[in-house]
Design a protein around this nucleic acid. Structure first.
Lengths: 223, 223
DNA sequence: ATTATCTATAGATCTATAGATAATGC
DNA sequence: ATTATCTATAGATCTATAGATAATGC
């Protein structure tokens, strides 16, 4: 046992310690909530996964619901802003001539890239959002955090195709988000159905197909 | 108070009483599970909604998980068989010349019609399936109850378009089921996003668009 | 005589708080 | 002196079982 191995904890400032503890707690909660939902996870489960006492969670968060909301909020602005900026660039580039497929590609691929590039914690967040998007607690947070980026996408879709009735545009988005959420959830169902031909964690395979598929769907609505 | 109002309980046979109690319990559980999921509902919640004692649920069901599975199973074979029969009729009618749009219309509209025609209990079941489809408990049941009808649909899609790679067919189905589940969940999100222009309980509006949208999406995958 | 329903309760959680201890910060 | 973490514990559930009572069935 060298001296380094006994002093397992490197000296940290309190700010660092706080930040690290918070991150560990949020990561653990994010993963567990993504699998079992708000009510399927106890504070003890989270504490156990982090390796701290349950009461520490109460030191950092008022209650379980606050922890849940913090998990949602932590990464929401990152993905929302990334997509808003990408859509703004797309508007500038196409100078008043956007297309359905172009706008959908920016919206969907910018999101999928985040999960492809940034590894497991982000993919857990994606699964977390998908898992809770159809719950009373989650739906509220979806509205708060993602309405701006979604409404921006919809405005561009309308501009791209003023001939498609607004109602159809909204229903089309409804289908898009269903397909996206089903992807982010990574349930493994498509793996089992296809006998392993498709894997639900193969986001690049989805990226290759999703925007193309959905753009064609929108086009068909005017028939 | 006439004599009819005091004798609120009409005399029933035990078999009738049993059937009625079971149905009330399953209806209540179905609704509550559809809103809050397996872990968000207690047996007390269910008992309270029915107006009986918690222990009665244990008389009819071994435990909470069994009740949950019974809710899933009760209507699963009805919707599964209905669609299997409709697809079989479609195969016979088209005599080896099925189309993507035709098969998807049969699969999706046959399901949606069930919820449109049979009222709230069935719509609660639809929401229940959607709510739990991306949970560990629900995914397992989806496999058990719905694999046959889904694989039959996929076989027809392959026959309709042997030129589309099998992998693309499966991914297309993955998008279809995401859109369908998002519809069945009736979260109210599309209502709020569209400022009331679309309503998430407007299944006829979805029926008018979903198969058409998805068929065009499949077509686009070969480009 | 059997089945449906209720009463009483054990045992196991779970959330949340109060207050103690250990570590950093000035 | 302040912040991070732990110990101890109250109070409120929740699931599940044992056994009693009320209603149907032969």
């Amino acid at each position: 046992m060298a001296e380094g191995s006994t002093a397992t904890r490197v000296r940290r400032t309190k700010a660092e310690q706080r930040a690290e503890s918070l991150e560990q707690i949020l990561d653990a909660a994010e993963y567990l909530f993504s699998v079992n939902g708000l009510h399927g996870v106890t504070l003890r489960d989270v504490a156990k996964r982090v390796g701290v006492h349950t009461t520490l969670l109460h030191y950092y968060f008022q209650d379980k619901k606050s922890l849940f909301e913090a998990v949602f909020a932590r990464r929401a602005s990152v993905t929302s802003n990334r997509r808003i900026e990408a859509l703004d660039r797309y508007i500038a580039e196409t100078a008043g001539k956007p297309t359905l497929k172009g706008a959908l590609t920016v919206f969907l691929d910018t999101d999928l890239d985040l999960y492809i590039e940034r590894g497991e914690p982000w993919r857990n967040y994606a699964a977390f959002c998908a898992r809770v998007s159809n719950t009373p607690e989650g739906a509220e947070l979806m509205d708060v955090h993602f309405d701006p980026v979604v409404l921006k996408l919809i405005a561009i879709l309308k501009e791209a195709r003023p001939d498609i009735p607004e109602e159809d545009i909204f229903w089309g988005y409804h289908f898009v988000t269903g397909a996206l959420m089903n992807t982010l959830a990574r349930t493994g169902r498509i793996d089992r159905l296809s006998g392993g031909l498709c894997r639900s964690d193969d986001f690049p395979a989805v990226k290759k197909r999703l925007a193309k598929f959905m753009a064609a769907g929108f086009e068909a609505l005017k028939d």
